[in-house]
Amino acid sequence: MAELSYRDAVARGIAQEMRRDPSLVMLGEDIAAAGGVFKTTVGLLDEFGPLRVRDTPISEQAILGAAMGAAMTGVPVIAEIMFSDFLAVCFDILANQMAKTRYMTAGQVTVPVVVRTANGGGSRFGAQHSQSVENWTMMIPGLKVVAPSNPVDVVGLMAAAVRDPDPVVFFEHKSLMARKAEIPEGELVDRLGTARVVRPGRDCTIVAVALMVERALQAADELAGDGIEAEVIDVRSLVPLDARTILDSVVKTGRLYTVEENPRLCGWGAEIASIAADEVFWDLDGPVVRIATPHIPLPAADALEDETIPSVARIYETIRRTADQ
């Protein structure tokens, strides 16, 4: 067991897969010599050399296009888009090309690409470098979407994403980069489409991803002091979605809360709320409540950013106020 940070876990997961599959390559801006803007790819150039770990120009379309073209001709690729906000610059390649080509060609083309990108707020970077954009990608048929909340999941889900033959968008949360955890020795391979109950409870279900998972857990601890036992589920994989784990929990607790960092409109929690309304409505003891960032661009100032992204206090208070209504 070695203790690794979330950012080191990214490099560890990639290295594990590049050792296993000598054809796997990666590309992105400043990922090779500099080890990445978030230092998530440190050491990979040294181990795998400049043919497999390539620095690119600031050309997000060319990066994702190259990844797709290589992947569809037999070379699997991990591509980095530095900040997830920049997905907007190359969204055509992601949303229209990678995602749809298999379907449009009746299965002739396979696109084994992982698009890694730094996502989320908390860094006081303002509205163009802080967004949580999981929902931009999960609404596109043909894209898989994962957002790990801890170093162990980073390694295992990275392996699962690389081994998955479909395009996977892999969101690495900027505010989790320094979090540490013991990582088991040996190969770690997780499964996409599996949520995890990270805290059992009988009174309500809280679903969260990435940075919101630890906040949900802290809120749950506080709620326990008031006699409310919350079950916390780390969704981990938004597409495919482990709806079963979530619905089973809701049937047990009768209450569902989503904790979402994305702006509220059409956030990922809306789909989960809708599934719950469709399928376990009669098991619910009250309305589904979404705790999300308001529908605003994120402000830069720390006071404002802290006020808008769901905090432990807001999660706690919202649940406290509504749990026994």
Partner: peptide, 18 residues
Amino acid sequence: IIGAHLTIANGAAWSAQL
């Protein structure tokens, strides 16, 4: 969609090179 496939053609060429 105009433009995309030039970048994808690069990828196929990159893969041939590799």
